[in-house]
Design a protein around this nucleic acid. Sequence first.
DNA 1: CTCTGGTCCTGTACGC
DNA 2: TGCGTACAGGACCAGA
Length: 278
Amino acid sequence: MPELPEVEAVRRSLIELVAGQRITDVTVGWPKIIKSPEQYEQFQDALKGQTIHDVDRKGKFLIFLLDDYCLVSHLRMEGNYSLHKQEDPVDKHTHVVFHFSDGMELRYRDVRKFGTMHLFAKGSEWTVPPLSKLGPEPFSDEFTLEYFKGKLSNTERVIKAVLLDQSIVTGLGNIYVDEVLFRSGIHPERKSRTLTDQEILILREQAASTLKESINAGGSSVNTYMNSHGQSGTYQNELKVYGRKDQECYRCGAAVQKIKVAGRGTHFCPNCQKIANY
DNA sequence: CTCTGGTCCTGTACGC
DNA sequence: TGCGTACAGGACCAGA
């Protein structure tokens, strides 16, 4: 559920909590979260003695930079980090704990257990999945009109499926794709190759502006999502179609519809986002 | 190539 | 009131 703006909110709050912290030990309560190294014991061993220097992000991935390693963390549906004292009671959904030399600990909590962590030797993280497969972020210089046009015209898929594909553009998830398509006046089931140059231009602008606005609002707090300080964002109040099934479209008053597209619940306004004629 | 459906998970919503 | 069941979803994988 956390998408780019929410992960950015987490990154900003997290860096204040962990920058400079030295890891003395790591507890792993659910080994499946650790995707690499294959043996989670190696994950634990490698991290002992490492200091966290910075927390970066690409798309929906958090990237912890350590002395010799790089920890790549994906929160998936509802993973979250928080700092605790050792003596604080441990929630039953806490699956990974990073113990620090000052006695505090960073806890990774994830009710669904869908989140992932990859540990790589520093510098190699961009050469292997998952980071190597990511396309540019919507507001990056690499996300040029030529690039976007090329990707959209090169496939028979519907636009929603293309926007969810992290290898084409990274950071959008189910919520923001619906919002961006609404703001662009484009039906989620339009074949991406039928989009006009003008529509592609608008889509690119709206993808960037929607995410930027949400970042500035601290992200959206749908389903009680919060950053690592326990603060919620406010962008959920700005959502125009997501979660508004059967409610009036803010723009035209028609009832917002919910259908399934690319296997996902999809909200759109049938009046503002017409598919006819294509 | 692309779509569908299963997988991983568990809390929540819903029907009876 | 309480129980069973369907559902949600990011990324990935197998099969059509």
